[in-house]
Write a protein that binds this DNA or RNA. Structure first.
Lengths: 139, 139
DNA sequence: TTTCAACCTGGAGCGCGCTCCAGGTCAAGC
DNA sequence: GCTTGACCTGGAGCGCGCTCCAGGTTGAAA
């Protein structure tokens, strides 16, 4: 149950100092402890919240929805069902995101293979042949 | 080699009409054909560019970099190497993105399993036990 | 011939998620 | 006691990628 300085919390969570302050300002983080002098002190608990937020942001959840989740958590144990549902909906979106990403990655790889097959350097041979489909400047 | 109306190009590419116009304005698309009356006519070739842009956007490439790619393509066959390199760098970033997404998806799933294990509804049993790690309001 | 939806242009506006700044305070080390 | 760097606040600004708007034109169908 140690306390972490703002910069330590920043490095551990991967958020910038400004972002941590911003998150507190908009109410995503709340009740962050302070020293007598007014400096923030982050607990392990705060840190695990931050890691969750890191997860949710990295998977594309908008901040407004994270706020909703945090709010529910603050409202107490009886919102557990809603929180679970929220995360499950998000997980589904993430799955779709992963499928899309994989599809488009395959597309990208195909494109790269097109270049790999290309005759390289100053070989005066086929230009404008073995294009992809059409006859003009293909991507 | 048919021609497509703007709205057809939009639905086929998944970009909005405004986005297509925007892409032309910033020079990402160029030399889009016009009717005598000034309406855009998209060719199959334009469409395949759009599908490539769709791929690159979906995988997170910034527009500026797509512009760079398009510019290189316009500069002719001799930039093929640069274009290939650009795509390969991007593919590497996409791979990292996929790894991160998968990691965080696992994290998210774990979180959800935490809720699934939770005693549900008005069972007066353990509250504030079987939390994740600490003793206070865990995420 | 008239209608009307689809299109055109230039430019302003917006939502998101930070990021930066000025001007000040705090506290650990010398 | 002084220095110095980490921290504080409120609020403005920014970069990105569109999105919307006003006001006008086009062209296919009825």
């Amino acid at each position: 149950m140690r306390g972490y300085s703002p910069s330590e919390a920043a490095t551990r969570s991967g958020f910038s100092l400004d972002t941590l302050r911003y998150y507190e300002k908009i109410g995503l983080l709340s009740d962050i402890g302070r020293t007598s002098g007014g400096r923030r002190v982050f607990t392990d608990d705060d840190l695990s919240w931050l890691l969750l937020f890191r997860c949710l942001r990295d998977t594309g959840m908008p901040i407004a929805e994270m706020c909703r989740y945090a709010e529910l958590a603050r409202d107490g144990e009886h919102t557990a069902g809603q929180r679970q549902a929220l995360l499950e909906r998000h997980a589904e979106r993430v799955e779709e995101q992963m499928r899309l990403l994989e599809r488009q990655y395959a597309h990208l790889r195909e494109k790269i293979r097109f270049y790999e097959r290309l005759p390289v350097g100053p070989s005066p041979a086929s230009e404008s042949a073995d294009r992809e489909s059409s006859t003009s400047s293909a991507p």
